[in-house]
Design a protein around this nucleic acid. Sequence first.
DNA 1: CACACATTTCGAGAACTGTCGAAACGATGG
DNA 2: CCATCGTTTCGACAGTTCTCGAAATGTGTG
Lengths: 120, 120
Amino acid sequence: MCGTVSIVDHIELASVCKALGDPTRVRIFQFLLECCCPVALEEDGDVRPANGPTVGEVCCQVTGIDKITSTISFHLKELRQSGLITMEKQGKHMICGINREALARLADYLNEASKRSTCC
Amino acid sequence: MCGTVSIVDHIELASVCKALGDPTRVRIFQFLLECCCPVALEEDGDVRPANGPTVGEVCCQVTGIDKITSTISFHLKELRQSGLITMEKQGKHMICGINREALARLADYLNEASKRSTCC
DNA sequence: CACACATTTCGAGAACTGTCGAAACGATGG
DNA sequence: CCATCGTTTCGACAGTTCTCGAAATGTGTG
């Protein structure tokens, strides 16, 4: 066959893509991309937990309303279940973050696919 | 902002991802990846049209039935409208191919996103 | 022209998805 | 412990998507 791919089956690829297949979810995702610092490792040698916005902040940014809606909660769940984002409880809050590894895997898969040049 | 991205708005990204957000379409897509030679340019200096399977062959591969179903036709239309695949009439047949450029753009976007390392 | 073949379109039904408001849950502070 | 805050879950509804079979379209062939 034409080389190994990182995303194995139809189902997994479909599930990740489906998660990004809704405009509201893409907006959430892009907001998280902009405002989440990746986990810091170097400076203090310690793994620092994700440093991102709370669900309320995501809501506020995406809907413009300063109130958590069940709709955003629903979309966050979809994104989390697909593995694209992470969510971590911190006291009263849920901190959202990008799962850069999942993202990189998807990018690699598509990049490899776009460059495949010979027939099998 | 954090650098330009190739895929502009939520809608476009969502639309491409949505097209890949169905297991049947992913199977079609992966079959096309495996069996479509990219357009040949170098050897004869001529642009050769896409060299891929017909709709019937896609159907046969994906459904196992040697008969074109309206379902596959529907999914091919979705993929074509999202820009991920190309279809070209050749006599009686429609030849399907991968749009590697669209694929590369998506891969670039995701790759850049996965590497973004600073806050805005 | 009539026919067979490759494919798309249409219409209908079932299944799924996105949205909303209300209720429930869990953590924290008084 | 009660109230409150941040968040999720639930139930309902409208809208969309997927699938199927039948009919329509287009294209080469006798």
